[in-house]
Nucleic acid binder design. Structure first.
Lengths: 230, 230
DNA sequence: AATAGAAAATGATCTGGATCAGAATAAAAA
DNA sequence: TTTTTATTCTGATCCAGATCATTTTCTATT
């Protein structure tokens, strides 16, 4: 099966900016009603089920957005810098976070008062429209990830995530690879042992090269092929 | 594993209405720029990859929204009456439908000119905010379905979809059940044979009763338990 | 009523990948 | 340095569920 959906990591190539749709006055309002916090690697930015008093905007860093199950988690997406987190909590009657977010790397996050954000959405149509499109980006990506995880098998999933990291997260062929095998397993919804085996295969076949924490993609064409064949 | 997510069918209990946020004048504008079409059972309302010249609003009926893969499809959600279809095509630069939609039953659909809809979103902040919240409903549901399909096993998935149909689609214990086993299989991402086996189990255990096209849920508590245990 | 064609049912087999158990490295802490 | 603890690696086993092959039942058509 060839597959048109190659977006396990759910990061969009282009990334809409949000706040330039606001008037100066409105920008100041946001400014006055936000705090900026720096989280260390592995810290939890927001917790599923907790009260959502603010919207989060990741200014710098990388985080995972996931649903917590009793037995295992489901990572919904990787959130890179310039991500908007917590939108579902805007939904009327739902004032709690529906997912948890934890940082992969040190991250700087703006926490914006929910009420202020909500009011601005209802005042400024251009701003609301832009937000709506950011949610669209998000939805399109989630659909792709959903498809990948439910249709592709192990090799395809790993190939997919590796290409995502290369093209969308780090944007180069050789990058500092901070994911452990078990983190990769969580991300691709497979067991750690299987990740290890597949990564070994890729290494033996000369598709990738890892030295300490540096990963290099040697044969992106082949990985793309594996990803699209499922 | 007990599971908090029981939403395979992705239909929300409450369903926001959209168009009452528009001024009379704006409602008339929509009225003047839409056509109403009735689709027969099994017809395709929109086709993945085709140009998206309009937004769709299902007024009556039931449809499936799905991604077409080469080997198999992935149903993203069931769209009941009062569903908004085609929002991702609003996204700047993306003027094609990212999914296909096919009716389960005869359905009446408003086709609203995309340009007009887009303009209204950028003019009327309340309308945009409401639309944004409808998208939120949608996202929350897709997350739930994603979780169910990737974490629950066969019995849990079938129990889940049956409860969805009972509680959210037909809203009664005994209903006209128009899904074939293979349609149920597509919906739960399992093989037709497995659906048959699980349904047989449920029948033998006195949880459900089917006579011709009428399905009755005899033991909703037990089905809920099975669903939440995964 | 007879024929054809779906859809449902059932058993047998196969397989992708998880799970388990243990060994080899690597990293961190004493 | 040695000890501890985590991570990676490897092989063996197991199992849920898909696939395959037939049969039975139901529905539609001539």
């Amino acid at each position: 099966m060839t597959c048109k959906f190659n977006n396990t990591c759910t990061i969009f190539n282009k990334n809409l900016t949000l706040f330039d749709e606001l008037s100066l006055e409105q920008q100041k309002l946001i400014e006055a009603n936000k705090v900026t916090v720096t989280y260390k690697k592995g810290e939890t930015i927001c917790k599923q089920g907790a009260f959502a008093s603010h919207i989060m905007h990741i200014k710098k860093g990388l985080a995972k957005v996931y649903l917590e199950g009793d037995a295992s988690n489901l990572i919904l997406k990787i959130a890179p810098s310039n991500s908007l987190i917590g939108m579902p909590a805007i939904y009327e009657g739902n004032n709690t976070f529906i997912y948890s977010v934890t940082t992969y790397t040190e991250s700087t996050v703006d926490l914006i008062d929910m009420k202020v954000f909500k009011d601005l959405l209802q005042e400024n149509a251009k701003f609301a429209f832009r937000t709506l499109n950011i949610m669209n980006e998000n939805i399109i990506q989630i659909y792709g990830r959903f498809f990948c995880l439910s249709n592709k098998q192990l090799h395809g999933r790993i190939a997919d995530i590796l290409m995502c990291l290369k093209d969308r997260v780090y944007k180069k062929n050789k990058f500092e690879f901070s994911f452990s095998r078990s983190e990769l397993a969580e991300l691709t919804n497979m067991s750690t042992e299987s990740v290890i085996r597949v990564m070994k295969n890729f290494k033996d076949d000369g598709l990738i090269h890892q030295e300490n924490k540096t990963l290099q993609i040697l044969n992106p064409d082949m990985l793309n092929k594996i990803s699209s064949l499922g």
